[in-house]
């Protein structure tokens, strides 16, 4: 969805026309659900938060300002904040960090193999499992959100150099699994 189309959809929402929300939903449900799921790691809770996300978008339609950058970054920021708030409320914030560390250690050997070997014929799901959590987030924001590296760095609160390095690293791994940019 182009910025102008998004603004029109927001204007519809401001006038109480739910078709505006439906248009945004159709364009971004996958984008938003994946952002939430990557943080929450639980389908049921991710569905709840994604539903709440679209309701919040409806209620706060009047607050969107087009000049504050692209809408995809705006949507990603809200979705991430809602997910992190959820983890904070349920006391699971620590758990995600621990999981990231554990996953990182467990996958170390596998990743080293991927770096050395070419493992073609893997499904996308299998290929994504070869990536670190942060690498998956960056690939998602880049491919689905079409964001710049600077926008991704701002959303993830990471240095720009780290984002580009992790993205290149992720692409190398995916290339060895049979997927090219």
């Amino acid at each position: 969805m182009e910025e102008a189309q998004f603004v029109i959809a927001v204007e519809k929402m401001k006038m109480g026309d739910k078709e505006g929300l439906r248009e945004i939903y159709q364009a971004y449900i996958g984008y938003i659900y994946s952002i939430v799921y990557q943080i929450i790691q639980n389908k049921e809770n991710a569905e709840d938060i994604t539903s709440d996300f679209f309701l919040r978008l409806w209620e706060k339609a009047g607050q969107y300002k087009s000049e504050n950058g692209g809408h995809r970054g705006y949507l990603a920021t809200i979705a991430r904040n809602m997910s992190i708030d959820f983890l904070r409320k349920t006391g699971r914030e620590q758990l995600v960090e621990e999981q990231e560390e554990k996953e990182s250690e467990e996958n170390e050997d596998t990743r080293q193999n991927v770096e050395l070997e070419v493992i073609e014929g893997l499904s996308m799901q299998e290929a994504l499992q070869k990536l670190e959590v942060r690498e998956r987030e960056i690939v998602h924001l880049k491919v689905m959100g079409e964001l710049t590296f600077q926008e991704i760095a701002d959303i993830l609160s990471m240095p720009l150099g780290t984002v580009t390095w992790k993205y290149r690293n992720a692409l190398d791994k995916l290339r060895r699994c049979g997927y090219h940019e």
Binding site: G30, M124, V139, G178, H180, E181
Partner: peptide, 14 residues
Amino acid sequence: MSKSLENEYKKYIQ
């Protein structure tokens, strides 16, 4: 055979 990351990723997300 190499596949397009963008296309395959979008299909997977959908």
